Amino acid sequence: MLLLLLLQVLASCLWLGRSEVVTSFQSCPQFFFWETTPNDALVPENPAWICQRYNNQYHFATLYNRDLRIPVYSAYIYQPGPGKRPNIWLVEPQLMGQTYPKTMEREWTLLNYFNISLEQLSESQATLKDYKNLTGLNRGHLNPSGHHSNSSSRTATFTLTNIIPQNEKLNGGAWNNYEQQTMISKTKGCITTYVVVGAVPGNNYIAKGRVNKPSYIWSSACCEMGTNQRKTWAVIAENDKNEVEHLTLGELENRLTKLYKRGQVSLFHPDCPRQ
Rank of each mutant, 00 (worst) to 15 (best):
L6F: 12
L6E: 13
Q8C: 06
V9R: 00
L10W: 09
A11D: 00
W15F: 07
S19L: 08
E20V: 10
V22H: 13
Q30E: 13
F32N: 13
P38H: 13
L42I: 09
V43C: 02
P44Y: 00
P44D: 03
E45Y: 03
N46W: 12
P47H: 04
W49E: 12
W49H: 15
C51W: 05
C51N: 03
R53E: 06
Y54T: 05
Y54C: 02
N56C: 05
Y58V: 06
H59D: 00
A61Q: 03
T62M: 01
N65E: 06
R69G: 03
Y73H: 01
S74R: 00
A75L: 00
Y76F: 14
I77N: 05
Y78W: 14
G81D: 11
P82F: 03
K84T: 06
R85K: 08
N87F: 00
V91K: 02
V91N: 04
L95H: 03
M96Q: 09
M96V: 06
G97P: 02
Y100H: 15
E105W: 07
T109Q: 11
T109Y: 09
L110I: 08
L111F: 01
L111Q: 00
N112P: 00
N115T: 10
I116T: 10
L118V: 07
S122M: 13
A126N: 04
L128C: 01
D130F: 10
D130P: 01
L134Q: 02
G140F: 02
H141L: 15
N143G: 05
P144L: 07
P144V: 10
S145N: 14
S145L: 14
G146H: 13
H147D: 15
H148R: 10
S149F: 15
S151G: 07
S152P: 04
R154K: 15
F158R: 04
F158Q: 10
L160A: 03
T161V: 01
N162T: 02
I164D: 11
P165F: 09
E168R: 15
K169L: 12
N171W: 03
Y178N: 12
T182A: 13
M183T: 10
K188Q: 11
G189Y: 08
I191Y: 11
I191T: 07
V197L: 11
A199C: 04
A199G: 06
G202P: 13
G202R: 13
G202T: 11
N203A: 15
N204F: 10
A207H: 01
K208M: 13
R210D: 09
R210N: 07
N212K: 15
K213R: 15
P214S: 04
Y216A: 05
S219Q: 11
S219N: 14
C223I: 10
M225S: 08
T227A: 01
N228Q: 12
A234G: 02
A237E: 07
L247V: 10
L247C: 08
G250N: 04
L259N: 01
Q264F: 02
S266R: 14
S266W: 12
P270W: 14
P270V: 08
P273S: 01
